[in-house]
Simulated assay, not measured.
Amino acid sequence: MQLRTEWKNGWAAIIALIFGSLSQGLSREQKNKQALLTAVYVFIIMTLTYYISASATIKHSTTFPSWVLLTAPPLIFLSTSIILWCCLRASDLIMKATESQGLIPYHA
């Protein structure tokens, strides 16, 4: 018996499997609420962390216009949060597609 370790669908599957394992026993409404809250928290944490770090490291002699430094990171973080939210909302489908029970490994 060989332990199945490949991840066919990359990081989206890994996130969905973790979320699926942690949310077992929750209703569909509770899962959707947790997925939304997780995406919002990730956006806030990434944005705050970036601006705290950037205020200490970015000098005025940068080649990028200031509006780019102010708007690009939140847009990237928002996109990442939306992708995360979609993956978490689809965790049941991803778990079915990968034939997984969550983080519980099975033998092929």
Rank of each mutant, 00 (worst) to 15 (best):
Q34V: 09
A35D: 02
L93W: 13
T49Y: 08
W11C: 15
Y50D: 08
A56Q: 11
V42S: 12
M1Q: 09
R28K: 11
Y50F: 13
L36G: 06
S100D: 00
Y50T: 04
L26M: 06
A90L: 07
S100H: 01
F43M: 06
E29S: 08
R4K: 11
T49C: 10
I45E: 08
I58H: 05
A39T: 00
I14T: 11
I104L: 14
A35F: 01
A13S: 15
T71N: 12
I52G: 07
I52H: 04
P73R: 00
M95E: 01
L69R: 06
I18L: 08
L22Q: 05
T62G: 10
C87Y: 13
G25E: 00
G10L: 02
Y106C: 10
K96S: 09
K96H: 07
D92W: 01
A72T: 11
Y106E: 14
S61P: 01
L93A: 09
Q34C: 10
S81F: 00
T63I: 13
I45H: 01
H107P: 12
T5H: 06
K8T: 06
Q2D: 15
R4I: 07
W85D: 06
T63H: 11
K59G: 09
L17H: 14
Y51D: 03
T98M: 09
L75H: 06
S79A: 11
L84Q: 02
L93C: 10
Q30S: 12
A54G: 00
W11H: 14
A16M: 02
T38A: 12
P74V: 03
T62E: 08
L3Q: 07
H60K: 14
S66F: 10
E99W: 07
Y106G: 13
C87L: 12
I15S: 12
I94T: 03
S27R: 00
F77C: 04
S81K: 02
S61I: 06
A56V: 05
Y51I: 07
P105R: 05
F77S: 01
I52D: 02
L84N: 00
G10T: 01
M95D: 02
L22C: 08
E29V: 09
T57F: 15
I14G: 07
Q2M: 07
C87I: 13
G10M: 01
E29Y: 07
W11N: 09
A108H: 15
S61W: 05
F19N: 02
I104K: 07
I76Q: 06
